[in-house]
Simulated assay, not measured.
Amino acid sequence: MGTLEGHLLSGVGFLMYAFYYSSLTSLALLQKQTVLNHLLLPRKLLGHRLIWQVSYEAVMKVIVPAFGIIGEYFYPLGVNRLKMIDWKDPRRLFIFKDNWQHVTMFGFFILSGVVDIVSQAQQARWSMKLERAAEALAFYVLGLLMITHIENKNALEIRVHLLLVLPAFLLALVLTVEIWVPDNAPLWVLKSWMGLVLSTWMMQICEMYIPLTGQPWRADNPMDLAFVAIFFCWHLALGVALLIAIYGLCSLWHRHASSWTKTLGTKYQRCPTESGGEELEKLSAEAVPQDGGV
Rank of each mutant, 00 (worst) to 15 (best):
E281W: 02
Y209P: 10
K262H: 02
E279Y: 09
E279Q: 15
Y21H: 14
G248W: 07
G6R: 00
P42S: 15
Y21D: 04
W217P: 05
L50W: 03
L4D: 09
R270K: 14
S22D: 08
H48K: 08
R92G: 08
I110H: 06
I95D: 14
L156W: 06
M146K: 00
S112V: 01
A168K: 04
E278C: 06
H149R: 06
G71S: 12
I150L: 06
G293N: 00
S275P: 00
T34L: 08
V197F: 05
A237F: 15
R43K: 14
L225R: 12
S119R: 04
T34M: 14
I51H: 12
L173E: 04
P65W: 09
V12S: 02
Y21K: 11
S259V: 09
L46S: 00
T266L: 07
V197C: 00
V62K: 14
R92I: 06
H38N: 05
Q33M: 10
L8T: 11
G47K: 01
P211L: 08
S251T: 02
W217N: 12
G107P: 02
A241F: 14
L82V: 05
R132F: 13
C271D: 01
A124N: 10
P216I: 01
K61P: 00
L173W: 10
M16K: 02
A136Q: 07
L175C: 10
M208K: 06
E278A: 04
L24V: 07
L9I: 10
S55T: 03
V12F: 14
L163S: 02
F96I: 15
S55M: 01
F109R: 07
A285Y: 08
F96N: 12
M146L: 11
L82G: 06
T148K: 13
D86S: 01
L30P: 02
F67W: 07
L130V: 12
G239C: 11
F106A: 08
T261I: 03
H149F: 13
H254S: 01
V118M: 13
T3D: 11
F74W: 10
V288K: 12
I95A: 12
L82P: 01
H7F: 11
L170V: 07
F67A: 07
I63D: 02
V114A: 14
K83I: 11
L187Y: 13
V160H: 04
D291Y: 07
Y17T: 03
K153W: 12
Y140D: 00
S258G: 03
Y209K: 09
L264I: 06
